[in-house]
Amino acid sequence: MDDISLAAVALLCLAALAAGWIDAVVGGGGLLQLPALLVGFPQLPPAYLLGTNKAVSIVGTSAAAITYTRKAPVDVRTAVRIGLAALAGSVAGAFFAAGINSAVLRPLIMVILLGVLAFVLLRPAFGSTAPPPGPVTRRRVLAAIAVAGLGIGFYDGLIGPGTGTFLVIALVAILHMDLVTASATTKIVNVCTNFGALVMFAHQGTVLWRLAALMALFNLAGGTLGARMALKKGSGFVRGVLVVVVVGLVAKLAYDQWAA
């Protein structure tokens, strides 16, 4: 942190604030926070940026999870089961993260985001209809554990940005949740994935702890505010934020790739 300007630190803190808000509403805050870290520390290996991103994100995600579980109809048992699988997946992903080349991060994330955008736009009613009555079948829960837990958890540990968005989409698609309930459940799962990945990054010594602590304060404020707004405004608001965030991030990543 000694070789970075005060202006750069201020921008990183603002990015953490915005990322916390976005993450709490619909997920994907890391797609703002991680590029900000890439700009602030272009000379560092990606593993340090990924580790610092996790140390910041877990604070805002935990605050959002607490806010949601107090007021939203969350099936905590199902969320924890998916979260434990996601924790295992994220530890495995973080183990392989040290070998990632920063040159592949932007195009990879951009391709994934384009797929997310196409899915949401082609499904206008996605996440806005009430879930079907009755308990969720065991098959659907197992599918959610495999896809949202192990699969997306591995991605979270390996790369990370967009995990919350992908979890929301997976939970709506597999468990037929509305967007607010899916966002609430995602926060619990995301705490598990962040924790698993952070343990591995900390073990490898690839976390900038002083910077992470400062950014985490802003991420905490953003996460708390975002969760409250999502609960108050409902699924239509969450869907609108999802589309705006994905479009904006695709445009930003495309510009960065073209400029490079």
Results as ranks from 00 to 15, higher is better:
residue 201 F to P: 11
residue 239 R to M: 08
residue 168 V to M: 07
residue 168 V to E: 01
residue 36 A to T: 04
residue 76 V to H: 02
residue 101 N to D: 15
residue 37 L to R: 03
residue 239 R to F: 05
residue 244 V to P: 01
residue 171 L to E: 03
residue 143 A to C: 09
residue 214 L to M: 11
residue 257 Q to T: 15
residue 4 I to N: 02
residue 237 F to I: 08
residue 28 G to I: 08
residue 245 V to A: 09
residue 17 L to F: 15
residue 200 M to Y: 04
residue 232 K to W: 12
residue 47 A to N: 06
residue 232 K to P: 00
residue 101 N to P: 00
residue 33 Q to E: 04
residue 84 L to F: 14
residue 27 G to N: 08
residue 141 V to C: 06
residue 198 L to I: 02
residue 84 L to Y: 04
residue 110 M to Q: 05
residue 179 L to D: 03
residue 96 F to R: 03
residue 160 G to Q: 10
residue 88 A to R: 08
residue 166 F to P: 01
residue 208 L to Y: 02
residue 43 Q to V: 06
residue 192 C to H: 11
residue 68 Y to V: 06
residue 38 L to D: 08
residue 255 Y to K: 13
residue 186 T to H: 00
residue 67 T to F: 00
residue 159 I to W: 11
residue 144 A to R: 07
residue 202 A to S: 14
residue 121 L to K: 00
residue 162 G to C: 05
residue 184 A to Y: 03
residue 103 A to E: 15
residue 69 T to R: 06
residue 139 R to V: 11
residue 140 R to E: 14
residue 193 T to E: 02
residue 185 T to N: 08
residue 157 G to I: 10
residue 234 G to A: 05
residue 100 I to S: 10
residue 228 R to F: 12
residue 159 I to V: 13
residue 229 M to W: 08
residue 118 A to W: 11
residue 68 Y to L: 07
residue 38 L to W: 04
residue 240 G to F: 06
residue 228 R to G: 13
residue 95 F to V: 12
residue 69 T to I: 08
residue 125 A to L: 13
residue 103 A to I: 10
residue 230 A to N: 05
residue 101 N to S: 15
residue 235 S to P: 12
residue 248 G to E: 09
residue 178 D to Y: 05
residue 67 T to S: 14
residue 13 C to W: 10
residue 128 S to C: 13
residue 94 A to L: 10
residue 62 S to D: 01
residue 216 A to Y: 14
